[in-house]
Amino acid sequence: MAASMTIRNIVKQAIFIKNGSIGINSKLNVAHKSTHRAHNPNYNRTSAEVTLALRPKQNFLHHDLVDKHRRSPLQKGTEVLQTETEVKAPRDYRFVMPEFMPRPNFEDRDRVLEKLERCDMFRRRTNITIPEFYVGSIMAVSISDPYAPNKRNRFVGICIDRGGIGLKAYFVLRNVVDGLGVEVMYQMYNPTVHSIEVLKLEKRLDEQLYYLRNCPLEYSTFSFDMEPVLLPRDAEIPVNTLKVKLNPPPWEQKWERQNLKGIEPLELTPRMIRGIEMHLKPWEKYDLMLHYRSKVPEEEEEQIMSEVYKEKLKQDSLRKVTKATLRKKK
């Protein structure tokens, strides 16, 4: 090894001496070896200059530097974000209120924006109870409708989807009315929404229930006069392990590819099986970076959820316990 190293060094030196007479062009890293000006547009440019010109330019400030400037002692006039230290949220609180979690892309995130958005969300929550719910819960939403007799439009349905971050948080309710399946999307922080109640709090086996569109209508039918089902306080959220039977194909989406747990086993045709195989991504299980980038770091999550939990405790203590609360006291 030592011998080859010395040989390599000798060769390197030889090249340097040979090119040294040409001067600065010895550092050029062009495939086309000609040093004649007409053929070489990067004549007389060092490789350092070339890399400098070709480096990806950023016309925005790096996110770490932004926070550094905000915290800097040289800065005056703008307040620094306070970290939450008093209260600690229960574990996995992010599943109770997922719209408070920021988007996982750390480069585009801004702490001040998230804080201000959360402030707005807390304020809205003082005026309206936004209960804890999951996909599969049966809910009733009442919005302001100028043309309805009592100025309210009430809709009851099963929550088939939930998403959105911050003030854009939404959920979709599905029900069957007069034999026609109806779905409505509601924004949780929309000021025209007057009340959101959970009539039956439960979870399902899947995170989205769009397959109910291809099921017999009984699975999506819920009475508008349904009475709220109360759960004992501090009970675990019940999981409804119902396996739904799908209508015969054709379906709206290729449910056989989505690895759904809440449907009965499907009869797969050879074509379906081929399709599943084609779209299989078994390597995703091993892709650590994918999983890491799809989540917010734990320390940040704890920080944010602690703030949310503190605010919730404050609001709960202020709010009176009414008949409509879902979890009764023991």
């Binding site: 919005i143 809709f155 939404y170 026609l180 399946g181 109806v182 779905e183 409505v184 999307m185 509601y186 924004q187 929309n190 025209t192 929404v193 569109r213």
Partner: peptide, 18 residues
């Protein structure tokens, strides 16, 4: 009077185009 298309918030989406 009814669409299968994705609608704005608060507007219902039907299972058939009516």
């Amino acid at each position: 009077v009814g669409l299968r298309q994705k609608q704005l918030p608060n507007v219902p989406r039907m299972d058939t185009n009516n």
